[in-house]
């Protein structure tokens, strides 16, 4: 399967765009490349570090009727690109920049975020970052990062967007002047939503992700994230306080019953 898909991508992108596969999910394949899709001068200006771009490709699914497949791929690619484009206009919110998208082939080009952690701790997502600090779990650096993670989610929700799949590997840390700042990635399940339910579920999913991978220190970790989350809403005055109360209340309800509200379907 995956070999076939890689061949498809290579034919589509032509040999002028060399690709390296880095990840594969149920719906999409992720590659990196060092070629900018249209702005050749952007490749040269990065100094000593080679510039990288992400290509996210949604291959056609053979088990679907071709016309349905086309519509679905187009729809999903477009909605992910739209969300990314909208979110990059929110001040303070960190998401990778959208560079190009080809909805007919299900292809998106995005800015590359992150780096490799020191001492082969792997790629700089939140999960690996927390593992890196497992011997010193309550380090101030961890607290700072988790607070900022909370802030990012708070900003996202305050602007009425939901991520849909908040996990520790979908939070990538990018180093800026020696400080780590978290970026939200993968908006494949993202949506614009005013529902408290979706926001509660977002928070719940992340909480569960942290409990399952870093269970020993999860209480403190979740507390720090929630502190960051609350700080965004509290800065918005009375309206923010009210909305925060609603979200937290729903979050606690979701925690009691689980992610799925209805038992139907």
């Amino acid at each position: 399967m995956s070999k076939e898909v890689i061949e498809q991508v290579v034919t589509y992108l032509t040999p002028n765009v060399p690709i390296v596969p880095i990840s594969q999910g149920a719906e999409a394949f992720v590659f990196t490349t060092n070629v900018h899709p249209y702005n050749a001068s952007a490749c040269k200006t990065a100094g000593d570090i080679p510039v990288k771009y992400i290509i996210k490709y949604r291959p056609p699914k053979k088990y679907r009727h071709p016309s349905i497949d086309k519509t679905l791929t187009k729809h999903r690619t477009l909605s992910e690109s739209r969300i990314l484009a909208k979110l990059s206009q929110v001040p303070g919110l960190h998401v990778p920049k959208l560079i190009a998208c080809d909805v007919y082939n299900g292809c998106i080009w995005i800015e590359f975020i992150g780096e490799d952690l020191p001492e082969s701790h792997g790629f700089s997502n939140l999960k690996n970052f927390l593992w890196m600090y497992k011997t010193d779990p309550y380090n101030i650096a961890v607290e700072k990062v988790l607070f900022k993670v909370g802030e990012q989610i708070g900003l996202l929700h305050w602007n009425d967007y939901c991520h849909g799949d908040l996990t520790t590997s979908n939070l990538v840390l990018h180093q800026e002047n020696g400080d780590w700042s978290p970026y939200l990635i993968d908006f494949g399940l993202g949506s614009a939503s005013t529902l408290v339910e979706d926001k509660g579920v977002d928070l719940y999913v992340l909480e569960r992700a942290i409990i399952s991978t870093h269970s020993k220190f999860a209480d403190k970790y979740n507390e720090w994230i929630l502190m960051g989350f609350k700080s965004v809403y509290e800065n918005e005055g009375k309206k923010g306080q009210q909305k925060l109360k609603d979200v937290i209340k729903r979050f606690e309800e979701v925690r009691l019953r689980g992610r799925k509200r209805s038992m139907l379907g």
Binding site: P37, Y38, N39, S41, A42, I99, A100, D102, Y104
Partner: peptide, 20 residues
């Protein structure tokens, strides 16, 4: 900037390639 201009060219070329 150049990026703005060429992103439009790229988009147009994609639409052109798929007859859209």
């Amino acid at each position: 900037c150049r990026e703005q201009l060429f992103s439009a060219v790229y988009k147009a070329l994609i639409e052109w390639k798929y007859n859209r």
